[in-house]
């Protein structure tokens, strides 16, 4: 009798603990899916009407590849590797859950134009570095250290979710009049048939300062 009570008590404790662990691992909240409205394009159109002497806006750094990325709000501090394209034209992705990839077919972080960093939401049984990317808020900082030793400090302006089959190429990769950064990971539903998530989460940021 006492043994049964002890067992029941142990099960209650274990059950509550398991639910707490589950709560800890709960999926990150995501923004609603948006249509490709291209916030970046709207922004550059608005500013091109500004002073004709300077057609670009904000600080601009020379070209130098990134080596490390820090996102204090997500407790992220990871090495950066280069990513090209797969034979089918899609972007390569990092080969482990932690490393963040810099797409080499776009400008370097801090230089004029959109720099693109991609990281896994999860990979091979581990949560990825960008597991909680969707929880970033406008104003959060992203610090990218470059090979020239300069750290480019960006602030997040938007976080959006898009269906992968309607990926907003112009907003993410298109021309902008400032030094921008795009952080990309997966989101939405997981399609077990294809083995892929249906959506991408994209965080947009702008260069604010350099260190």
């Amino acid at each position: 009798m006492i043994r049964a009570r002890v067992l029941a008590a142990v099960l209650v404790v274990a059950g509550v603990a398991a639910i707490a662990v589950g709560h800890h691992y709960r999926p990150a909240a995501e923004p609603p899916r948006s249509m490709p409205s291209s916030p970046a394009v709207a922004r550059s159109a608005a500013s091109s009407a500004a002073a004709a002497s300077a057609l670009t806006r904000g600080d601009l750094l020379p070209t130098s590849p990134p080596t490390r990325v820090r996102i204090p709000a997500l407790r992220v501090d990871e090495a950066v590797t280069g990513l090209g394209q797969n034979p089918d034209g899609s972007m390569q992705v990092p080969t482990d859950a932690h490393t963040v990839g810099w797409y080499t077919g776009a400008p370097t972080p801090g230089a004029l134009g959109p720099a693109v960093l991609a990281g896994h939401v999860n990979y091979k049984g581990a949560d990825g570095t960008f597991a909680r990317l969707s929880t970033l808020h406008p104003g959060d900082q992203v610090e990218v250290t470059r090979q020239d030793g300069i750290t480019a400090v960006f602030t997040v302006t938007d976080v959006d979710r898009y269906a992968k089959d309607r990926f907003p190429a112009t907003a993410v990769y298109g021309a902008i009049d400032h030094a921008g950064l795009r952080l990309i990971t997966c989101g939405g539903d997981f399609d077990t048939r294809t083995g892929h998530y249906t959506d991408n989460i994209v965080a947009y940021a702008e260069l604010r300062s350099t260190e």
């Binding site: 992705v93 939401v121 990926f167 990971t185 997966c186 997981f190 077990t192 083995g195 959506d199």
Partner: peptide
């Protein structure tokens, strides 16, 4: 297209 950053 999109980016395959996750295996679920």
């Amino acid at each position: 297209g999109g980016v395959a950053t996750g295996d679920g």
